[in-house]
Design a protein around this nucleic acid. Structure first.
Lengths: 134, 134
DNA sequence: TTGACAAATGTAATAACATCACATATCGAA
DNA sequence: TTCGATATGTGATGTTATTACATTTGTCAA
């Protein structure tokens, strides 16, 4: 499962809501945007989000309880390498990047400590270039 | 403000609850533990937590909405260097470490992109050595 | 000492985020 | 076609965090 067309109706609706947004959305914001499409309950959103996370098409930003469409689907669709997010607290814009050195250092620590990692969160909060010059 | 003795009553109660716990606690768990000490409302806990975070005496684990007493107060009480957490999903134990290389790479990215970072979260979820051998 | 400001506290209500439980529907393969 | 897996609909509930407002306590200078 990688192509957009293979998503179910609810998954497509949720994914498209995130894809057309210019920043992260909360589950409840998505719900509100999809009321006209027949969405009535949070669970409809959360279920779709879970699947989209599975498929690697979106990310969850733990530090702000929100979700974004993946910015570089092709780049890391094949799994390895952790992704870091820089989240602007002024405008809400999120930049996504991955860094092999960081990935390597984390892996060194986990290997050295017998820790089996399943998911790693790296989130940088601050103010983006645009917002700090303005 | 660095010494435990200078904390207010509520701050001490909350800090001690975290210090004697063997893992992270949620705000509401802390509240329940402190009912006998006169705590009645979430805000009493959250206000103390905010201060303790300010003072660098505790950390917030964003990915599990919980708080832990800082494991190495002396080490990073002087501010620089970001801290990473490895959180075991079986036993709840949290290991805290900091890595200058990771700190440096993050700073390179933020400097290169004009991003003024204020707080950085690094949380590794997985299973610790103890739990994976058991 | 007092009065005035800042910091801390108490309390109720509400907002924001997430899941449970249960019923129903849809689809693909045996 | 019938069975199982997946997806969906819906209400209720659970969990996490904040708002708003009143009161108390501590500090410090006049």
């Amino acid at each position: 499962m990688t192509a957009t067309q293979e998503l179910t109706k609810n998954q497509s609706l949720v994914f498209n809501a995130l894809a057309r947004a210019d920043g992260p959305l909360s589950a409840y914001t998505i719900l509100d945007q999809l009321r006209n499409d027949g969405f009535r309950a949070p669970l409809q959103v959360y279920r779709a989000l879970d699947k989209l996370l599975d498929y690697g098409m979106i990310h969850r930003l733990e530090s702000i309880n929100a979700f974004v469409a993946c910015a570089h689907p092709h780049t890391h669709s094949h799994g390895h390498g952790m992704i870091a997010f820089a989240i602007c607290e002024k405008c809400g814009q999120v930049s996504e990047f991955s860094d092999d050195v960081i990935t390597g250092r984390v892996r060194e620590w986990t290997n050295g400590n017998g820790f089996k990692q399943s998911k790693t969160t790296i989130e940088i909060r601050g103010v983006c270039a645009n917002c700090s010059t303005a």
